[in-house]
Each structure stands twice: as structure tokens, then as C-alpha cells.
Design a protein around this nucleic acid. Structure first.
Lengths: 109, 109
DNA sequence: ATTTTGTGGGCAAAATATGTCCAAATTTTT
DNA sequence: AAAAATTTGGACATATTTTGCCCACAAAAT
């Protein structure tokens, strides 16, 4: 996994490594070529379902791709705000807290 | 700011500290009381516009509230996934990268 | 008993997400 | 240079989600 590629960049790279035209991969993904083009260029964001299909089509670990997917979404939402580092920290605390709560509930159950 | 309150919990706490009924704050926020009830209880997520209005209505730092808002949204999306810590790390790297890119562009400009 | 306060459910409108279609632009091949 | 292949741009439609209201009812307070 190249450093900080977007999903689109990754897909284009893998596609080119396979020497296949966009239309062929689009067909494999059951997607219109025009849409794939937009996704590769970053003009559109892929759906989660499509990201899963991409993992299969390219035989990549789904988990890795979902990490890219989610992180890209967050970064796109936040990069303009001057408080984004704080947001990420608080988000992490919240997740820990929710997780903790669930563990406690499981124990009581 | 209490540790890891949700926005809804914060609003309810502040409202009760003011000793006002839900309907009164809802009116101040230009919002239906039923909707505010749902937000306070965590059954609905507030819009960003509403979060800004809340900051004004309660005279809180808007930035603080937006940090809560964003972090809560992220946590809600991610807490179920077993890779959420990685996502947050990668998101931070992406944001740094985007920021770096913008700085470089500014320099060249 | 009455009034006040908070909640549940259903709904509609607005906003956003998602993908297709088709033509045009660009690139590659002949 | 021309033809074929590939990629892209734009408009559009549909699906989904977001957002808040309305209204009746439940719960709490008076």
C-alpha cells in the first residue's frame, strides 16, 4: 500500500499494473466506466459497497481498503477546520468509552 | 465541558441548569420541542446549523461544540469496526498531507 | 383533576448519494 | 492522417438519508 494514496489513486495504479483499460475493470466492478473514471480521479467518492467489490476485484484485503475509505471520508470532512486534531482525539476517546460501556454491559449480562 | 458528554447530554444539562423547560429552549433554537427531545436523548443527531445555534443560545464557544459534533459523528460511524484506531491514525496523516500540499502550493504561488 | 412537560411515531420535503447514459475529448493504434 | 479505443464531462434520474414538523399521548408537576 503506497503512502497515502486515495482509493481512486490505488485503483488506477492497480488497473494500470494489470494493463487493463478502465472499461474492463468497470465491467468487473459492475459499474459504468464514466463513474469509475470519476472515482479514480477523485471527482466522486465510492460507496462502501463498491469499495468491498474493489477489494475482491483486485484481491486486496478488504480491511485495508475500508481503512482507506473511512479515513479519506473523515479527512475530506475535516481538513478545512482548524480543530481537526482535537476532533480525532475526542473521537478516539468516545470510541474507547463506547467500547468500555459495551464491555461492562457484557459482563453484567 | 464534562468528560465525553454527547451534544444532547450537554444541552440537557445546560437547559436544566437554567431551569427551563424543553419547549422554551426549543423555541429559542427555532426547533420543534419533539425534535429537541430526541436530540437530547440521543435518538437524533443534530444538524451542523443547529449546533451553531446551540452554541449561541447557550453562549458556548462554537469551536468546542463543533469538536463534540464532529467527534460524535465519527465515533458513531466507527465504533463497531475493529480497525477504528487505524482509521483515525490514517485520517490524521491524510489531513497533514493535505495541509502540507496546500502549504507547498501557497509557497509556489 | 388539571396543567405542564416530555416523548413516540408517522410523514413530507430537502439534501445528498449513487449510478447511468450519451456525447465529446483525448489518446492510442493502424 | 485516419480510425479505433479509451477516458472524461455533463445532465439526469432514482434511491437514500437527513431534517424537522405535527399531533397525539404519556408522564410529571401542580
Amino acid at each position: 500500500m503506497q503512502t497515502l494514496e486515495t482509493i481512486g489513486q490505488l485503483v488506477r495504479r492497480l488497473r494500470k499494473e494489470q494493463g487493463l483499460p478502465l472499461r474492463k475493470i468497470a465491467a468487473k466492478l459492475d459499474l459504468d466506466p464514466s463513474t469509475l473514471s470519476k472515482i479514480e480521479r477523485g471527482d466522486r467518492f465510492p460507496s462502501k459497497e463498491l469499495v468491498n467489490r474493489m477489494a475482491q476485484a483486485f484481491d486486496i484485503d478488504e480491511r485495508e481498503l475500508l481503512i482507506l475509505y473511512h479515513s479519506e471520508k473523515i479527512a475530506n470532512d475535516l481538513y478545512r477546520e482548524d480543530y481537526c486534531v482535537e476532533v480525532l482525539e475526542v473521537a478516539e476517546q468516545r470510541i474507547d468509552y463506547i467500547r468500555q460501556k459495551n464491555i461492562v454491559q457484557k459482563k453484567l449480562f
